[in-house]
Design a protein around this nucleic acid. Structure first.
Lengths: 136, 136
DNA sequence: CTGAATTTGGTACTTTAGTATGAGTGCTTC
DNA sequence: GAAGCACTCATACTAAAGTACCAAATTCAG
């Protein structure tokens, strides 16, 4: 955050300086109007590109957020959703049971319910459906 | 593509026009230097932002291309990779067999080989590993 | 407090998935 | 033409996964 403020501050300062220098050099007649305008245009053009890259480019790349609405629509209970997440990680029912301190029976029950609610025949299909719905 | 050329063309034209108008209005003394420079700066600033958004913003959002290198490293045969893709779609061995006009035995063999090559214990884990490696 | 939903777990059973092993075919490469 | 590899398929298993049904404890809103 500190770095951002510093960069922005010096950027604004530099642009203001450029602005003033341009105005004065024009008044003094040492530089032609065309050159000044061209320099200004180029500098601000690339400043625009740079700022855009910094501020708007990062967030959309990494985040692929889950669809809370569809998650609610599906009526999955907390445990069922939790189990679904573990299933998607490639764990077996036994492994999930150990991880959540439950028995394999319980996991089977939850998985079966998930399959019904997601309208899937197999756990692999449930994973595919869940990812299509942006639930995972 | 046609649209892009059209947009870029009119953009360049508009900028050139702005450039000329600025120069002339300055020479005629009808506008102050500061105003012209400010307008030029703003226009080029936002043009930079716009172009950057159009050209560099789209590809990373939609495309998540597969990692050809890792795919080669894994030494998966054509059929094995093909079967892996179907597995990731949530199909059963029987369904894959029917889809590819093979027997379930053959699919089982392919899946087993895929599991070994991906170092996975289950097909669900194979899916997870494959997606982590950007193979799918 | 009560009824409904959730969570947990069990038994019994069927269906898939996965392993091990062998074997025939076709294609390429040395 | 023999060795190697990919592809196909089979049999015989074992191990998971999944279904059906039941039941107790817990949670939670009305």
């Amino acid at each position: 955050m500190k770095k951002t403020i510093l960069i922005f501050g010096s950027l604004i300062l530099a642009l203001l300086l450029l602005f003033q220098i341009s105005t004065y050099s024009l008044l003094l007649g040492s530089t032609s109007i065309e050159v000044v305008i061209a320099v200004i245009a180029l500098v601000f053009f690339f400043t625009g590109i740079y700022l855009n890259k910094k501020s708007l480019h990062k967030p959309p790349q990494t985040e692929i957020r889950i669809d809370e609405k569809k998650l609610a629509e599906l009526q999955l209970s907390k445990r069922e959703y939790e189990v679904l997440q573990e299933v998607a990680l490639g764990l077996s029912n036994k492994e999930i049971a150990d991880k959540l301190f439950l028995t394999e029976s319980t996991i089977k029950t939850h998985v079966s319910n998930v399959l019904i609610k997601l309208d899937a025949k197999r756990r692999t299909q449930a994973i595919q459906i869940a990812k299509e719905l942006n639930i995972l």
